[in-house]
Amino acid sequence: MLANFIYQNLLICQFELKRLFATRKGWLYLATYLVVWYFILFYPIRYAANLLDEHRSTAHAGSFFEFLGFGSLLDWSIPAFGVYWHFALIFFPMMSVVIAADQTCSDRVRGTLRFLALRVSRDGLFFGRYISFMVIQFLLILLTLLATLLLVVFRDSSLLLEAFNNAASILINLFLVLLPFTAMMAGLSATVKSARQATVWAVLIWSFLAGIISALSSYLPILGKLKILIPGYQLSGLAQLSEWETLQLAYIPVLQAVILLIIGRWIMQRQAL
């Protein structure tokens, strides 16, 4: 039974990868993504990394970047990855909300999900699509990290090993960061009728949840701890950490993802297909 569940998840994952890498629509998304990242890499990241490289040895550099709120950039052994990390912490969660918004909704509205539901359990569908979107995002992150790595090595090939180390720490961390965002979108996608609706609801829930918890915590401060349930809660903390230190906060997205997946699965089990 479990083997069949895993096998079906693999098939769904394979099919979704095909959607991105072997269809015209997928190529269009991919091309857009690559163009956006081309500009991010070759302008903000490259210039910021150069700037850091030039000033990191000067006496006032630390206090200057601290003043701007980017002091942690100097903790990265390779500045380009430090800048990438700060960009990625903003870019990928936003991207996740957009690209993971249509995990099941358009298929449900079109009726395609019914063909699948006759062959796969609802759990298989829900987790299969979730895993697929995580794999897709993993590959997209990997692609940009490889480009950054090439950029670094092209300038100084002696940094290859260090660059691999930096890239690996970012890859794992970003993957963890995206777990709850994708889980939130999986749950929303299981209940709304379009990807746009899912994105709108995600923004609303995100904003209102933060507002409500802040308001409640002003009356009862202990309720402020509930903020840990908001996807992205740890992002500002993560921005202050560098390289493998970033794993210190890994428990937060994992916990959020588990809770959101339980809620999403509950929705999927009750939803009419």
Partner: peptide, 23 residues
């Protein structure tokens, strides 16, 4: 209904269900 043991034993033509136009 929906049990994974029914996979391959039951099939259906749902009303108004359409295939994905991408594939």
């Amino acid at each position: 209904p929906g049990d994974s043991n029914l996979c391959g034993k039951i099939s259906a033509l749902p009303q108004d269900a359409r295939f994905d136009p991408v594939f």
